[in-house]
Design a protein around this nucleic acid. Structure first.
Lengths: 190, 190
DNA sequence: CGAGGCCTTGACCGCGGTCAATGCCCGTGG
DNA sequence: CCACGGGCATTGACCGCGGTCAAGGCCTCG
């Protein structure tokens, strides 16, 4: 039987069946319908998600403008680190762009897992290190590349985004306006 | 006796004296003179540093232009995560802007420490999570704020940088040219 | 058929980049 | 002690990328 969660986790560490079973005991199946929020600004992020189906976006509101930080697809873990780790109010919104099925792991349960087995701690460390690399890339890309280059990189590296996310959100993710993205696409066609 | 390293580490976890001693056994005192490199592009980052004195910068070379990613001051840990974790060639240079005294911890020794005590693993996880937050902030700041705002934030949040780093490097760190920073400063005076 | 959301297009503007000239500071050597 | 040179900051002129505002077209859905 297919078990995307086990597959995912074993790509990083070879967890025993017993460990995976223990891990899964804490997971709570959750549905987030399109347009609903997993997290709102001001709320404390209590859970890590493993997304089985669907698509989320995390964005920040600044002067009534949305700045999209990331799109999160199925078969990956997600949490709003800043709020989750410090258990303090978040500056971000996390909204479902498609109907989502996910497994939620609560803050206290995760910490219990960390204390129960060194492998979970290793895994948590690896997840954080992964995020460091990913955000680091995007940070340098913004400093280094113009908008057209960033759009081309997105096409190459995450084509799924183009297919499943409306253009004005992609623009926000790239750090430009919908008008600018429209012009970039026009210029690329010629 | 003052022990900045112990102070630093105990701000995160209460390590026992025995643990700290074990940790320190692996540290190798290192000097990096102003202008010398801790890491060059293409080399593999073999060490984590704890910087006791001095100041480093990490930058990337793109079309003969330096893009400064970070300044690293005394009393903090540093490594080039991407190269260090995967033990693969780095895209960055790490250069001393002032004479540095540092303690170097080798890749294999760090991993031995991770295996020897869960506290070191916890600490490593916290360091990574710290970087996530920090880089995350800077990422959002670039998307959200114009250059003047970013400069003002730097003044507020890291005034030491202004005192110890030449202006054209600050400009690079902010993602603008020296000329642009000069104009910003001029406008702020009036 | 009408309404609203999204994409496109055009006109205009401003932030920041580029290039070149100038000034300033400071270390070095005649 | 002064002259020179090199590195850094500043200033001005000009330009282009991307933002802003407004209008128009297209789709979907009620």
């Amino acid at each position: 039987m297919i078990d995307p969660l086990a597959l995912y986790m074993r790509r990083f560490l070879n967890f025993s069946d017993e460990e995976l079973l223990r891990f899964k005991q804490f997971l709570k199946p959750t549905e987030i319908k399109k347009g609903e929020y997993f997290l709102q600004e001001g709320a404390i992020c209590q859970n890590v998600l493993f997304i089985e189906e669907g698509l989320l976006r995390i964005y920040h509101l600044h002067n009534d403008k949305e700045i999209i930080r990331q799109f999160i697809f199925e078969n990956s873990f997600f949490t709003e680190y800043e709020s989750f780790l410090a258990q303090k109010p978040s500056f971000y919104f996390v909204e479902a762009l498609e109907d989502c099925k996910a497994l939620a792991l609560h803050y206290k349960d995760l910490n219990a897992l960390y204390d129960s087995s060194i492998n979970f701690l290793r895994f948590g460390k690896m997840m954080a290190e992964n995020v460091v690399q990913h955000v680091g890339h995007r940070y340098m890309s913004i400093l280094r590349d113009d908008a057209t280059t960033r759009y081309n990189n997105l096409i190459k590296e995450r084509p799924k985004v183009l297919q499943r996310v409306p253009q004005y959100m992609i623009a926000s993710y790239l750090g430009i306006t919908p008008e600018a993205l429209s012009r970039i696409r026009k210029n690329m066609a010629s």
